[in-house]
């Protein structure tokens, strides 16, 4: 069952499309439910599909196609580090190593305390600020250095 808040947000998204095109809101609906619940379980995906009146499999296709959706648990903070070319040229590798050492996890792992998950990201379209990372798909941190990463981690905890 979707929460009242989630339904309200999804209803807002539905106003953007013709009435007979409810599937169009699936991108937003999955994002809204993921933000609320932390990740997209089968149940969450079915909930979204049921609310929009589309087949479960159609929602699953979308949830697994776009890589900002998480169909596995990702802890409290999902840190996505871009390692694509512009970031790589500005040593995103050192940021990745630093994060891995600091958190004791590799990519796609969740720290034992359930706080952090590390993901390798593709280009986020902010290469001027390389190297960079995003937390929970919403906050972007640019011009990273190992020291700055430490500061950010401290703030998050």
């Amino acid at each position: 069952m979707l929460s009242a808040e989630a339904i309200e947000k999804i209803e807002y998204e539905l106003t953007k499309y013709p009435k007979d095109q409810r599937q169009a809101a699936v991108m937003s609906a999955l994002r809204i439910v993921q933000t609320e619940r932390g990740w997209l379980s089968q149940e969450s995906i079915s909930d979204v599909a049921a609310y929009l009146g589309i087949p479960d499999i159609a929602a699953l296709e979308v949830a697994t196609f776009y890589n900002m959706y998480d169909t596995e648990p990702v802890g409290k903070y999902k840190i996505t580090v871009c390692t694509n070319i512009s970031c790589m040229l500005r040593d995103s590798d050192s940021i990745v190593h630093h994060l891995q050492e600091k958190l004791g996890i590799g990519f796609n792992q969740v720290s034992e305390d359930g706080q952090f998950c590390l993901k390798e990201g593709e280009c986020m379209g902010a290469c001027g600020g390389a190297p960079l990372m995003s937390v929970n798909n919403a906050t972007m941190y640019e011009y990273l250095t190992p020291e700055k990463v430490d500061k950010i981690l401290k703030e998050l905890k």
Partner: peptide
């Protein structure tokens, strides 16, 4: 008349499947 199979994932990892265990 009813989408029961889909191609989930993308690229080389894309695979045809029904919704989880259905």
């Amino acid at each position: 008349g009813m989408q029961e199979l889909g191609m989930v994932g993308r690229g080389e990892h894309a695979e045809i499947t029904a919704y989880v265990d259905q």
